[in-house]
């Protein structure tokens, strides 16, 4: 990787200050994407501000059905939280299938969300759960947060401090992994609330990144069952196509993963 300067932040304020004083600074959480990208010399931040050690960014709090997860909470800690498992096992299951055990020990929810990789898992969950991304400056709804491939609504210097959502009555995530990278080639998160509100969010497949599937949401709102999705379609023109999966094949996977997620929810 190119040369860089490492800084360790002791607080959110400290982190923001360190980053603002750097020319091309980046926040470094678990580093599972950022360091990997820097190794390939595809990213070259002049300064890294390590937020992994900030007290107060690693927590999972559950009050009633309200969930709040600190930005520096690792995938492993999300996956193995009994409190979370009790009210939203889908998010634990999702976290348990991110990367591999070693990546889960380092990678964080905040880092994953801020990076918005089109094949990452968390964005699908946050969109389907109507989560709020809490930053040091404001709260941003997931629908407004994910703005495109690797693009988010975060402003320069803005830092995610927590993710918050209300646990739905039913939810599940099903993904089909890329045989090589093991990232989601298509992942679908479904969530249903007692109000009848249904959300279906798809990752790994969309040409513009994570997206909600209106057709499936309407069908499931009528009839919450895998069969309700039999007629659902996804326009391949809106989907990614690569060496491993054409957009037509991804359209099929969107349907199949959605059905399996509903069945599992």
């Amino acid at each position: 990787m190119y040369e860089t300067n490492y800084h360790r932040a002791s607080s959110v304020e400290d982190a923001v200050r360190l980053k603002s004083s750097a020319e091309e600074g980046k926040y470094l959480a678990g580093g599972m994407t950022l360091i990997a990208t820097m190794k390939q010399r595809l990213a070259a931040p002049g300064d890294l501000v390590d937020i992994r050690h900030i007290a107060g960014l690693k927590f999972i709090s559950v009050t009633g059905r309200s969930v709040r997860i600190g930005a520096a909470t690792t995938h492993y800690d999300v996956a193995s939280s009994p409190e979370l498992k009790a009210i939203c096992p889908a998010i634990c299951d999702l976290a348990h299938h991110i990367g591999d055990p070693h990546v889960r020990h380092m990678g964080t929810i905040g880092g994953s969300v801020a990076n918005n990789d089109p094949a990452a898992d968390y964005p699908a969950a946050l969109l389907a759960l109507d989560a709020v991304i809490v930053t040091n400056q404001r709260e941003i709804g997931a629908a407004d947060f994910f703005t495109g491939l690797f693009e988010t609504a975060l402003e320069e210097g803005e830092m995610i401090v927590a993710i918050a959502f209300e646990a739905p009555e039913r939810a599940a995530y099903a993904k089909f992994r890329n045989p090589a990278s093991r990232y989601a080639m298509t992942g679908v998160f479904v969530a249903r609330r007692d109000s009848g509100d249904v959300r279906v969010a798809v990752t790994g497949a969309g040409a513009d990144g994570v997206f909600r599937h209106a057709g499936m949401e309407a069908a499931l709102a009528q009839n919450w069952s895998p069969d309700a999705l039999s007629g659902a379609t996804t326009d391949p023109a809106d989907l990614l196509s690569d060496l491993h999966a054409s957009s037509e094949y991804r359209a099929q996977l969107v349907k199949v993963m959605a059905k399996r997620a509903v069945a599992a929810a």
Binding site: G31, R52, H102, H105, M106, S181
Partner: peptide, 27 residues
Amino acid sequence: CDTTQCGACVVHMDGRSVKSCTILAAQ
């Protein structure tokens, strides 16, 4: 490897397995 996938570099950090190829010594 150079893409954080092969696991030949796994060590334990504070009691948990991690990939030492994707962590700075400074971290």
